[in-house]
Write a protein that binds this DNA or RNA. Structure first.
Lengths: 217, 217
DNA sequence: TATTTGACATGATGATCATCATGCGAATAT
DNA sequence: ATATTCGCATGATGATCATCATGTCAAATA
């Protein structure tokens, strides 16, 4: 059959790049919506407006697509989750991020949600390369959470950030796993309150440390 | 071919019950190990020592098996996770349960692990009936966590139990999703500490309430 | 003892999957 | 102008899947 050329006149490299972007977007969408198993080559390529045969011009295997699409999803989402401005204290930042994350809109929009939650249990069953990619992106997100409170280039609140992520991942996962919407909302609220308690404790801790430093000077 | 009769002489109803138990055990194992998609009829029946044809004498569909095997896994595991004795305070109980749950042995033994974590993201993509079963079992687990601290038959620490479960689910999920074992261990430790902080706050809260009750009497 | 039942096995069906072989045709290189 | 490259489509391959049709044989029933 004759080849359809909707994009005649474009440079071939650009064409391929645009195809790759569509594949990654479709893969990232399907990964979160249907999980590792649902991101099959046929449906992803179809969602990207291509056929399955073209897949191997872009990736060597389905596993490679999974990794690339996961990283794509995380890199696209990270700024949306972590960029803020004007927090006075570290605890206030924790509370702000939790409120943004543990939200009904996030819970309900799986296709555009945080890939850390959507693929958390899939990652446990995936191969080493996938888990290495998961960890690398997770560490970057921890640093981004620390963000404006980083001192001397070092992530100083890493443990708090880990606890925040655990509550966020667990909270969203549970809120999605449950059937009754009111109960689901309650899970989100309780997890936000738990983050708030940890955040207040963190602020109190830093307050104490600053006072001690002042006293001992 | 001639039918193999390893269990000649037994009552037919008992035979079927034993087969069902083997199917449920195999299903529960595979569900946690490979997820909803990995609990296929063929491999489950094979693991149960039967062939795929016998499946429909026990279940009407694969979805029915998934629900039954999930409930089976939870009901078998719940006492192992929640039964304790001799805790003085609610906070001590929270800490004890978190230490038991957020452990390396639990993280590493997927096949016999808690089904709430193993299937948390699968549940989000499952049908309503599965999520209803997930929620029903989850509520029972919250009650079991409250357990010895239940007063007048009412679950009084439900919010704390929810926060505990969120930290446990998120903590184990993240610890499994990550590649480096030392980092994974750190996630477990941090989540335990977070539970400890919430637990101490809960005890302090109850202490205050009791004192107030005493004052106003 | 004769008949019926039902748990299980075998095998077929059509769907979907990952991967590969092949060919086309337009953008490139010569 | 001619030759080459390569992104993409078509189609085949063998695997695995859920489900169903059919047969078999021992236990249950009559």
């Amino acid at each position: 059959m004759t080849q359809i050329t909707q994009t005649a006149g474009k440079r071939r490299a650009d064409l391929k790049q645009e195809s790759l972007t569509r594949i990654l977007n479709a893969g990232a969408r399907r990964l979160r919506n249907e999980g590792l198993n649902g991101a099959g080559i046929v449906p992803v390529m179809q969602e990207a407006g291509l056929t399955h045969g073209a897949f191997y011009s872009h990736f060597a295997s389905k596993d490679d697509l999974a990794i690339a699409a996961f990283v794509h999803a995380i890199r696209e989402g990270r700024p949306r989750w972590t960029e803020t401005s004007g927090e006075a204290t570290w605890g206030q930042r924790l509370k702000r991020l939790a409120k943004r994350y543990l939200a009904r809109g996030h819970r309900d929009n799986l296709a555009d949600s945080c890939a850390f939650v959507a693929l958390s249990t899939d990652a446990a069953r995936a191969n080493d390369r996938f888990r290495e990619a998961y960890e690398a992106e997770f560490r970057k997100t921890l640093a981004a959470i620390d963000g404006p409170f980083t001192t001397n280039g070092a992530t100083v609140h890493a443990d708090d950030a880990i606890a925040l992520m655990a509550l966020c991942v667990g909270g969203i996962a549970l809120s999605r796993a449950v059937s009754d919407e009111r109960f689901s909302n309650r899970i989100l609220r309780v997890c936000q309150e738990a983050v708030a308690a940890l955040a207040d404790a963190a602020d109190a801790r830093e307050e104490t440390q600053e006072t001690q430093r002042g006293d001992s000077r």
